[in-house]
Amino acid sequence: MENDRRNVVLWVVVALIVMAGVAAVVVRDRTRDRELPRQMVEEPVAGRVSEGVETRSVILFFAAGNSDGLVREFREIIAGGGVAAEAKRTVIALARGPLANGAPAIPRETTVEGVFLDSEGCLYLDLGRELRAFHWGGVSGEWMTISSILRTLGASFPEIRSVRFLEEGHPMETLTGHLDLTRRLWVDDWR
């Protein structure tokens, strides 16, 4: 009799844990959407089919735990507008953060002001000042941010051979005082 009661209690506990887990995931996703600037909610979520929207699959690279490398995640972005426009949406998706494993390598507040792809395959990536303002700093943190962007763009857009970082139209010298961003960074060098 006592065993039966204990079983019932255990089952209830297990059920509550499962429900709490599901609720946490739902709340997290909803919170994530609510917190994002409007600019960032322009791409469909995860890999599910999206009604009436033309999408393209890209590979995003996020920070692995303990700043020890990158993990990849497949994501659907809205297609169209050419390589530069799709690259812009891809970087926005990067800033939005992972849906599965890993952690964002770019501050969530980051905005993409503009992108331009020149005839030599150099993508001029113009980011808002939020990138530096909200960045956590450190060499590891900077490396993860730059690496995440370079690996992501290189994996999905063979047309992009190098990236030049700009901040609100001006060449960026460094992110938080460490890595040299005064020159274009070659995708091959970050593979």
Binding site: V139, S140, M144
Partner: peptide, 12 residues
């Protein structure tokens, strides 16, 4: 001389 930083609080 610098101190490091990461978004991952476990990085050490």
């Amino acid at each position: 001389i610098h101190c490091n930083a990461s978004r991952e609080p476990g990085a050490s």
